[in-house]
Simulated scan of single mutants.
Amino acid sequence: MINATTIKITPEILKLIAEIDEFKGAWRALGTLAPERLSALRHVATIESIGSSTRIEGSRLTDREVERLLSNLEIRSFTTRDEQEVAGYAEVMELVFRAWGDIALTENHIRQLHRDLLAYSDKDGWHRGAYKTNPNNVAAFDEHGNQIGIVFETASPFDTPKRMTELISWFNQELEDQQWHPLLAIGLFVVVFLEIHPFQDGNGRLSRVLTTLLLLRAGYTYVPYSSLESVIEQSKEGYYLALRQTQGTIRSEAPDWQPWLKFFLRALQHQARRLAAKVEREKLLLGALPEIALQILDHVRQHGRITVSEAVTITGISRNTLKVHFRTLVEKGHLVLHGSGRGAWYGLA
């Protein structure tokens, strides 16, 4: 059972929670953009989330490569492990975004999400959706791939089912009793889940899926429009340091939750601030740019790039007229021109 009595509610933690909750309350007003604008924001955030979460675990695919892969998901055949992981993560995230209200936190649902997360991973077929059967302590490796030590010991395969049952029971009871703020309860759940490391592989990716699920179920409905995973990727060293500092004390009589909770809440704060800035930027663009320019920007957000010829096809406007719009978008800092001549294309600034 989680010993949450040692949580110290510092002024910083209170301030972080207050700011995140203020944004949660303001989202109804901030999220009044047209559906197609919100769709564009969500598309970009989803690409960032999938790319970042898989790269944290070692994938080498860029966001552009992720976007290209997702545009062809119907092929359902992926040659590399990186592609397999991206495809599985994308489908699970879409499921969570679509049906989070129906996915209660239960062991069955967690195992199903794990099974779907690894649906395309060839080497993971033997353990999809099943708790680990072999130890999976988190190890450190040198530059040659040789193990040089254990960062921390995870739960044993024997103890894992019992500890997962206890963790899920604790979390659901905490939400019902409302003893702790939901963000604190979610933060504790995530760090203990990762300390247990219940599955043979895929625990990091699944923990970030579960974070999104639990935030949505707690009423933080803005999370699909801003990537928490990309925030974590940009602070990866701090992420692992905070995990190690807290996880090393979890089984002691006085767990130190502070390192992880501070990192977790700061990441959520940064996620909310990024989204607020994006929404305000969208509103400014909406009032300051003509419809043709907005069409161009929407296409770039969804596909990563655009050429003048593609814009002609999309808008039905002449090349000369479009060149004026492209010049304006570059001058205002919205787009950047890459290349020249026939190979020229535009990307987001």
Rank of each mutant, 00 (worst) to 15 (best):
T10D: 04
E19W: 02
E19D: 07
G31T: 10
L33M: 09
E36W: 11
S39G: 14
H43P: 03
V44N: 01
E48F: 11
E57K: 08
S59Q: 03
E67F: 01
L69Q: 01
T79L: 00
D82H: 10
Q84N: 03
G88E: 00
E91G: 04
E91M: 09
E94N: 12
V96K: 04
D124R: 00
A130D: 11
N134L: 14
V138D: 07
E143F: 14
E143R: 10
F152M: 03
T154W: 00
T154H: 02
R163C: 08
W170A: 13
F171Y: 15
D177M: 14
Q178G: 04
L184Y: 09
L184H: 08
G204R: 06
R208E: 05
R208Q: 12
T211D: 06
T211G: 10
L213S: 09
L216W: 05
S227T: 12
S227H: 11
S227M: 11
S230Q: 07
Q234A: 15
G248N: 15
T249Q: 02
I250N: 08
S252I: 10
A254L: 13
Q258K: 15
P259Q: 02
L265G: 06
Q269G: 08
L275F: 11
A276E: 11
A276W: 06
T313I: 12
I314Q: 06
T315N: 05
G316D: 03
S318Q: 08
L322Q: 01
E331K: 13
S340I: 11
G343N: 07
